[in-house]
Structures are given as structure tokens and as C-alpha cells.
């Protein structure tokens, strides 16, 4: 039986220093059948040239297919990813950030995981690395680059976050425990059903994995198979309110998807199946306002219609009323 073809999408932007290391780590994968899809988001440095040069050599022989594209203007990661998804031909898709690295057995392990579990989405443990170590013995704090607090002990925190909730689904509702799109591995069918990545600057990865969660139960492979490169922080703080907006959008899209009807993934967090626990989780995570909005239950402060404020829903009173009515004599039809 032929092994499945895996498309590796590389959305890249201004990483000329790291791109060769990144491509090498794909080259060294133990899984044989790979296609490489390189989408450059109009880099201003030599990222695209380096990649083109490298892929013009015997380096590319290892790949069944190579696609090299350059966005006409800088459009954002989600565009590069969607372009890559459109061009991908493999049954499965892996993504790698252009400054990160795969461990050699990554794709092999992930394929095992999905075929064993029947899931269409998998990710692994992540380790972090950086070239710019703080100077030994330096006392001036300016010499030490400040990293965003979210990256501190990332590997440990990924494990803690996964261990925290009863199912991976609930962990995913708090944050993207897969950390980055680079850590995503999924079937192409799933990506098409989801409809690709949304135009969200910060949260397009979280949105994608939550939409995947509705359709399939993601699998966590507890082995470090992805190296995530750290950069000192450029403060994103001024755009934090945008992240807040995007968080609301991601959560409401998820809630909307599970409210529309029974989720194809039976393990997806659901108010029906996890009756009570789901609402408790939503309340503790401070998502109640979003949940209420999607559920059509106005919360305090929102304009309510006269009787929707008066009568709570889901009281089974309709059944009781009809049961009483059925006890009466039947009207002749």
C-alpha cells in the first residue's frame, strides 16, 4: 500500500537567516513522500531568493513536487496559508514557520497518530530555542532581551495546559495548546471542510484548530518534534485590543458552529453532552457573554424583550403543558 503524500506548506516572510535551516529540517524527514509548497509573503530580504536557489539544486530531488510562489504584496500569514492549501495535493498537510525546525521523525510520528486514532488532526510537544542567549554574567538588564511572558517555560506550560482539563477540547477552548500553525498536521479534506484560515492577524491558528475540533478529535503526540524559535519581543501591546476582538470572533464562531447542530466530533465540548459542565467551564473562563450572544440568551444589560426576560428557556414546560392537554378528551377531527 502506498504511503500517503504529505504536503508541507512553508509560509515565509523575511527569515533569510533561518530559512535554510528550516528547509533542511523538512528535507531530513524520515517520511518519504513529501511535496513542498513554499509561499513567500513578498519578503523584502533574500528569503525567496535563498529558497529558490536551494530548491534549484539536487536538494529538491527528494520531493515529489515543489511549488514556489511569491505573493504580489505582503498579505499576512493567513493568505499564504490559504494559497498553499489551494495548491496542495497531498492527503495530509503539515505547516512549518519559516524560522522553525522539524525533528526528523515528526511527520512519520504524526501519520502514525492519525491513522491509529482515526483523527484528522494532530500536533506534538514543542521545544523552544533561540540563538540570542543573554550574555553570561551581564548585569545590565538592557543587554538581556525581554521575551514576551507567554514564551516563558513554553514547553512546560504546553504540557500543563493540556493536563489541566478533562479533555483536549476544553484545553483548546482556553488557548491554542498546539502553540503555532507550524505545529499543525491535518487532512486536506478537513481543511476544505473548515474553509481554510480566517483573516485574523493573531488568532487565525486558534480559530482553525477550534473549527477542526468540531469535526474531529485532535490528537496530541507527547514527544518533542517541533522546535519553535524565540525572538525578543517587539511590544504588541498597542494592538492588544485587536487580539481581544479576535478572541471574541474565534470563540463566537466556535459556539455558533456547535449550536448549529450536533458536532461531527462526538468528543467536542458540547452543552448537550457535557450538560452543566460545559456552562460551568464557560462561566469560569469568562466566556459567558459570548456564549449567551450566540445562544440567543440576552444577558443583563442587553435589551431584552418583555417575555424573554420573564421566562427562562429549556424548562420543559411545553412538554408538561401538552402532557396535561393530552389527558383531556380528544377533539373529533
Amino acid at each position: 500500500m502506498k504511503l500517503p503524500l504529505v504536503s508541507v506548506i512553508v509560509p515565509s516572510y523575511n527569515h533569510e537567516t533561518y530559512i535554510l535551516e528550516c528547509l533542511k529540517s523538512i528535507h531530513e524527514q524520515t517520511h518519504e513522500r513529501l511535496e513542498l509548497i513554499f509561499i513567500d509573503d513578498n519578503s523584502t530580504d533574500r528569503t525567496f531568493d535563498f529558497a529558490k536557489a536551494l530548491l534549484g539544486t539536487a536538494f529538491s530531488k527528494r520531493f515529489e513536487n515543489i511549488v514556489l510562489r511569491r505573493n504580489p504584496k505582503n498579505s499576512g500569514a493567513h493568505i499564504s496559508l490559504n494559497v498553499g492549501l489551494d495548491l496542495a495535493e497531498g492527503d495530509y498537510v503539515a505547516i512549518i514557520n519559516s524560522d522553525d525546525r522539524f525533528r526528523p521523525r515528526r511527520i512519520e510520528r504524526l501519520l502514525n497518530a492519525v491513522s491509529e486514532s482515526g483523527s484528522e488532526f494532530a500536533f506534538t510537544a514543542v521545544d523552544t530555542f533561540s540563538e540570542s542567549r543573554s550574555k553570561a554574567g551581564s548585569d545590565a538588564s538592557e543587554a538581556t532581551p525581554a521575551f514576551p511572558e507567554s514564551l516563558i517555560l513554553l514547553r512546560v506550560r504546553q504540557l500543563l495546559n493540556i493536563a489541566r482539563d478533562p479533555t483536549l477540547g476544553y484545553s483548546l477552548l482556553r488557548q491554542n495548546v498546539a502553540i503555532s500553525t507550524g505545529n499543525f498536521f491535518f487532512s486536506r479534506r478537513l481543511a476544505n471542510d473548515i474553509g481554510g484560515f480566517q483573516p485574523l492577524k493573531y488568532c487565525h491558528d486558534w480559530d482553525f484548530i477550534l473549527q477542526a475540533l468540531v469535526r474531529t478529535q485532535p490528537v496530541f503526540v507527547d514527544e518533542v518534534l517541533y522546535d519553535y524559535r524565540l525572538h525578543p519581543t517587539n511590544s504588541f501591546r498597542s494592538l492588544q485590543h485587536l487580539a481581544q476582538v479576535e478572541t471574541e470572533v474565534v470563540l463566537r464562531r466556535f459556539f455558533r458552529a456547535i449550536l448549529m447542530g450536533p458536532a461531527p466530533n462526538p468528543k467536542c465540548p458540547s452543552p448537550q453532552r457535557d450538560m452543566g459542565n460545559f456552562e460551568a467551564f464557560v462561566a469560569k473562563a469568562y466566556y459567558s457573554k459570548f456564549w449567551a450572544k450566540e445562544g440567543g440568551n440576552p444577558l443583563e444589560g442587553e435589551r431584552v424583550t418583555a417575555s424573554s426576560a420573564a421566562k427562562p428557556t429549556g424548562t420543559l414546560s411545553g412538554f408538561r403543558i401538552l402532557s396535561e392537554a393530552l389527558k383531556g378528551a380528544q377533539q373529533v377531527v
Binding site: 538581556t144 532581551p145 525581554a146 511572558e149 514564551l151 516563558i152
Partner: peptide, 9 residues
């Protein structure tokens, strides 16, 4: 956690 080194505490 410390801000200087993401793997040191």
C-alpha cells in the same frame, strides 16, 4: 518566570 531567559526561572 524571568523575562530575560525563557528557559530560566
Amino acid at each position: 518566570g524571568s523575562l530575560g531567559d525563557t528557559n530560566a526561572v
